[in-house]
Amino acid sequence: MGPIETDADRLLETVDGSLIAVGDVVTYHILEAGRAPDVALVDERTKRSAIEDEIRETVAAETHLEAVNPPAEISADVIRALVEAIARDEPTTILVEGEEDLVALPAIVAAPEGASVVYGQPDEGMVHVQVTDDHRTEMRALLERFEGDTERFWSLLEGE
């Protein structure tokens, strides 16, 4: 979806606007580089294993919202939390019980134009997506192929 970066400082130089971080390790590196993401989604796991204590203490120190999202799904609960977090003026961390990986997809759709969505690519680095209408269109098409109540999904994501 975007370039892969291994250096958070270099990645942050290209961020212009709001920043949504998906994943514990990504959020940790962004925080360590001196920037609090506007929205961070964490689940206290990386590659399906518990994260190190230092990372957990750093990324979950300021949990503002909680959501349940089973692995390999995108739940209504996590979409509600995402929409609420994006609307807030202060940085917001969402602690996900389950798995947050797929939430990068609706985050790209819900993020404002020009925002950055950063998610982890295991063993490679951080993928940086600067949100454009083309990205939103691509994500909408992909999300339409998911099983489930897509009509309800879109109404939740669009805040209706």
Rank of each mutant, 00 (worst) to 15 (best):
E44L: 11
E144Q: 14
Q130W: 01
E144T: 07
R152C: 00
D16F: 02
E90P: 00
Q121I: 13
H135W: 14
L19T: 05
V83C: 07
L143R: 13
L41P: 00
V59R: 02
I86S: 04
L143F: 13
I4P: 12
H135V: 01
L95S: 14
I30K: 10
D24P: 04
D77M: 05
E66S: 00
D77S: 14
A104M: 06
D133P: 06
V26T: 14
S116C: 12
D89F: 00
T6E: 12
Y119M: 01
R152M: 03
W154F: 09
R152G: 04
H64K: 09
D133F: 06
T93L: 01
G125I: 08
Q121A: 15
I86P: 05
D77Y: 03
V59I: 09
M139L: 12
N69Y: 08
E124S: 13
A110L: 03
V83I: 07
P106I: 06
V117T: 07
Y119C: 02
I4Q: 10
V118S: 07
A33F: 06
V103H: 03
E84Q: 13
E54S: 11
V83Q: 05
E151V: 13
A104D: 01
D7A: 12
A72W: 03
E100V: 12
E160R: 15
I108P: 01
V42H: 11
G2Q: 10
Y28F: 15
I55N: 11
L12S: 11
A67C: 07
S49Y: 08
D38T: 11
I79G: 01
L65E: 01
S18R: 15
T93N: 06
T132I: 06
G23S: 09
R10E: 07
Y28R: 04
G120S: 10
T93H: 05
E84H: 02
V15H: 13
E52W: 03
L31F: 09
E100W: 12
E62I: 00
A72L: 06
E5Q: 13
T63R: 02
F153I: 03
L156K: 09
I108A: 01
E100H: 13
G23D: 08
S116M: 10
E73D: 06
A85E: 02
E160N: 12
E52T: 10
H29Q: 14
V96I: 15
E160M: 03
E84S: 10
P112W: 04
D24S: 11
V129R: 12
E147A: 15
V39T: 02
